[in-house]
């Protein structure tokens, strides 16, 4: 039984190839990311499948999935917007953007809109402070220099 698509498995195999043959566990972070990209979030079955694919204990993969905070262990909206609220971004106006996002979407941080379209999250430093306020869309795309207007435009584009 395969739980991930052939494309996802091919990507995982590419990641495994980076490490010594007896170190497949090294690819677990990438494999969980790839699985999450496909599934939207990481159900326990998915984590167990990834662990088995890499030949590691399921609980060890679960440790990884719960340790790094970009993995989602419960369903999220189609579009996850993670706003950095750390100090440099805060100084550059992240609080205002956060309030705007919450008002606009009618949800708080850590919540999902009833239509399942957006999830709003608060993030830690993304390593691009000079461009703040900034957010990540679905973990992988950064939007910088946010203003209420650019936020509105972004939200509109995320169908």
């Amino acid at each position: 039984m395969t739980m991930l698509t052939a494309e996802s498995l091919a990507l995982i195999d590419q990641e495994c190839a980076k490490y010594p043959a007896e170190q497949r566990q090294s690819a677990v972070m990438a494999a969980l990311r790839i699985a999450q990209t496909e599934k939207g979030w990481l159900a326990k079955d998915t984590i167990a499948y990834v662990a088995d694919y890499l030949g590691m204990p399921a609980i060890a993969a679960y440790e990884v999935a719960t340790f790094y905070n970009m993995y989602e262990l419960a369903p999220v909206g189609r579009h996850k917007v993670t706003l950095c609220t750390n100090l440099p971004c805060q100084l550059q106006g992240a609080d205002r953007i956060g309030a705007h996002l919450q008002n606009k979407l009618g949800i708080g941080f850590g919540e999902t809109t009833p239509d399942g379209r957006y999830t709003l999250k608060e993030g830690e430093c993304m390593g691009a402070c000079g461009h703040g306020p900034l957010c990540l869309h679905n973990n992988h795309q950064m939007h910088a220099h946010l203003t209420p207007e650019s936020v509105d435009k972004l939200l509109d584009e995320l169908k």
Binding site: A48, P57, A58, I59, A60, Y62, E63, T66, F67
Partner: peptide, 14 residues
């Protein structure tokens, strides 16, 4: 395993 991190670290089975 010890899952989660920081103050939220918990010992648990899978």
């Amino acid at each position: 395993g010890m899952t989660h991190r920081g103050e939220h670290t918990e010992v648990m089975p899978f």
